[in-house]
C-alpha cells in the first residue's frame, strides 16, 4: 500500500477527517471562550490591584487577588482541569463548558499580570495630568490610561492566546473531544500511528501562523491611531 492509499484509508474512509473538523470546532470554542473569560478576569484583577495600591482599606481585596494569581500559577493546567471536572463540577456530564471555565480562570491569572504591566507602562504623568484636571481615578483609567495601555497589552495577549490554544490539547483528559483527542481516536480506530499526529501538528501550526498574522495587522492599526 503506498502512502496516498494509506492516507485515504486513514482519513477518508467513513469521512474520518470530519472527526478532526468537529474536534477543531471544539478546540476553537474552548480557546475563544477561555480567552473572553481570561480577559475579563484579567482586566478586573489588574484594575482592582491598581486601585488597591496605597489604599489600606482595600488590603483584603488586594490579598484576594494575590491569592488567586498564586494558586492558579502554582498548579499545572492539566491538574487544574482535572480538579475542575472531577471535584468542583463533579456532576457535569459535558466536559466542554468545564474546560472553557477552567482554561478561562487559568488564563485570567496570566492576563492579569500582562494587563497590569501594560497599565504600569503608561507614563505616570498621564494619571497626574488627568487627576489635576479633576477627573476621578476611574474616569482617568477608562479615558486616559487604558486606551494607551492597550498598545502594550495587545501583543502580549496575542501570545497568551497562542499559548492558550496549544494548552487546550489536554482537554481530552476530561472526555472532551477536541482536535487532539479526535486525532487520537483516528489512530486507535485505524492503527495508523503516524499520519494523524503529523496532520494534527500541521493544523495547530497553521492556526498559530494565522493568529500571528492577524495580530500583526491589529498592532499596525493601533499604531496608526496614535498619530505616529
Amino acid at each position: 500500500m503506498n502512502w496516498f492509499d494509506k492516507l485515504s484509508e486513514t482519513f477518508l474512509t467513513d469521512d474520518r477527517y470530519m472527526w478532526l473538523v468537529d474536534g477543531l470546532v471544539v478546540t476553537m470554542k474552548i480557546t475563544l471562550g477561555a480567552l473572553v473569560i481570561g480577559v475579563l478576569i484579567g482586566t478586573l484583577i489588574a484594575i482592582t490591584k491598581y486601585f488597591c495600591e496605597g489604599n489600606k482599606k482595600l488590603r483584603f481585596l488586594n490579598w484576594l487577588c494575590d491569592l488567586y494569581t498564586t494558586v492558579i500559577r502554582g498548579i499545572p493546567m492539566t491538574v487544574l482541569l482535572l480538579v475542575f471536572f472531577f471535584a468542583i463540577f463533579a456532576s457535569a456530564r459535558d466536559g466542554t463548558p468545564v474546560a472553557v471555565v477552567a482554561f478561562g480562570i487559568n488564563s485570567g491569572a496570566y492576563m492579569a499580570e500582562l494587563i497590569r504591566s501594560g497599565i504600569n507602562a503608561v507614563d505616570k504623568g498621564q494619571m497626574e495630568a488627568a487627576r489635576s484636571l479633576g477627573l476621578s481615578k476611574g474616569q482617568a483609567m477608562v479615558k486616559i490610561i487604558l486606551p494607551q495601555a492597550i498598545k502594550y497589552i495587545l501583543p502580549a495577549i496575542g501570545n497568551e492566546c497562542i499559548a492558550l490554544l496549544k494548552e487546550t490539547s489536554v482537554a481530552g483528559y476530561v472526555a472532551v473531544v477536541d482536535v487532539t483527542k479526535a486525532a487520537t481516536n483516528i489512530r486507535n480506530k485505524t492503527g495508523d500511528a503516524i499520519n494523524p499526529i503529523i496532520l494534527l501538528a500541521l493544523v495547530y501550526l497553521v492556526i498559530v501562523v494565522v493568529m500571528t498574522r492577524l495580530l500583526a495587522i491589529l498592532e499596525r492599526r493601533l499604531g496608526k491611531s496614535d498619530g505616529k
Binding site: 487627576r131 489635576s132 484636571l133 476621578s136 486606551p147 494607551q148 496614535d226
Partner: peptide, 22 residues
C-alpha cells in the same frame, strides 16, 4: 478633591498631554 482640582489648573515640566488624542 476632584471638585476642587477642577479649579486648580496644573502645568507639568513634561507637558503630559494625552498622546492618543488630538
Amino acid at each position: 478633591l476632584n471638585l476642587h482640582r477642577q479649579k486648580m489648573g496644573m502645568v507639568f515640566q513634561q507637558f503630559n498631554l494625552f498622546p492618543h488624542m488630538t
